[in-house]
Design a protein around this nucleic acid. Structure first.
Lengths: 202, 202
DNA sequence: GTCTATATCTAGATAGAC
DNA sequence: GTCTATCTAGATATAGAC
């Protein structure tokens, strides 16, 4: 693997762990095993390198999500597969966590991949919901665009709850709660993709 | 207002805007109009000062939320009042945004107020949901603890979507989507606290 | 309680040799 | 393409005078 590539991957990792503000060129170089001169030869500086890294992470995230969206199964099942997929919860979302970084948000260029990612996720879930409505999988009365946004938000918010509590179980609880809400719109009890949470339903 | 107080409030503001990693003692002193010696006289250092500031923000947030939870009205209406309350959306959540800061999450002391805040919000919403179930406001089949966690997560995630897009409308859309989902569990169409979103319901 | 001086380390880069 | 040297600024304090 060449140096530029190692620098990008190291930056991806550090942005995930420490955010943009918390990531220094020196730390990137150390992790990539590259010198100062090497980094400034391949990239114009920290913002340039960060942009490449953020774009890469955004693409990878969308690709991972698309794998779940395009599985066989009902709309509910495919949405559940996305929301419940294996995650390193306590590390946070590689893309979403950057939305709290002041310098990322202040830079239209750095912010754009975030914006694209969430627009993509929302749009794909909206499509699945409309498909489900057409097939009679959901009862009428649901506004697909809003519900899709809410489901994406549940996942991002679930990371916040889990990291605040220092426990991945909080993620699980919030996401299953979101699916519980979605199931209230299913025309007949949806067969959940995973066994239900323990909490008894009143 | 005395110096210690001004230092705490300045720290609250900077933590909100820039996070813990992005906030320097010097910036705090500048904003508070206090000198180095003054800050280190009143506080042991940055972590100590930050702890006081985070606790303060957490208390204020819970108090603000409690105002909405204890309004008159149905459970749905009080939850909606909390979720739709006036917010400076693009600034993010003063408490939730700290959940993305690596040094806050790594410190049990700094993390505790976050954990407490979200536990409180979730518990209060769960109580409202149970109350609503007892009164027949919601149909059976809802798991209140999970749904409460999901609703808290929707709000936190909505901040992420809005800041990523650079637009407060994304917040609005996600939160209304969350309420749309909750309304699917209402025994009869809930009277929304605010006019419905424009999107036509299919 | 507050101030100024000082100290050490890192951030984020530029310059020029190899 | 990579390395080392150098630079200015800021982070995060401690020391001691006033």
């Amino acid at each position: 693997m060449d140096t530029a590539e190692r620098l990008i991957e190291s930056t991806q990792q550090l942005l995930w762990e420490r955010g943009y503000v918390g990531t220094s060129p020196k730390a990137i170089q150390r992790l990539a095993g590259a010198g100062q001169g090497s980094m400034y030869h391949h990239f114009a500086g920290k913002p340039d390198l960060a942009l490449q890294a953020i774009r890469r992470s955004a693409e990878q995230l969308c690709a991972q999500a698309e794998e779940r969206f395009s599985e066989p199964g009902s709309a509910y099942e495919r949405i559940a597969a996305y929301m419940l997929r294996e995650r390193e919860v306590l590390r946070g979302c590689r893309v979403g966590s950057l939305a709290h970084d002041p310098e990322v948000v202040a830079s239209p260029a750095l912010r754009e991949p975030l914006s694209e990612t969430f627009a993509y996720l929302r749009r794909r879930i909206e499509e699945l919901l409309r498909e489900g409505l057409d097939r009679g999988e959901f009862v009428e009365g649901m506004a697909p665009a809003g519900v899709a946004a809410a489901l994406v938000a549940v996942v991002q918010g679930a990371y916040v709850l889990a990291r605040s509590a220092g426990s991945a179980e909080e993620f699980e609880r919030a996401v299953r709660g979101g699916l519980d809400l979605l199931s209230a719109y299913t025309a007949r009890p949806a067969a959940p993709a995973e066994p239900r949470q323990q909490e008894e339903k009143t």
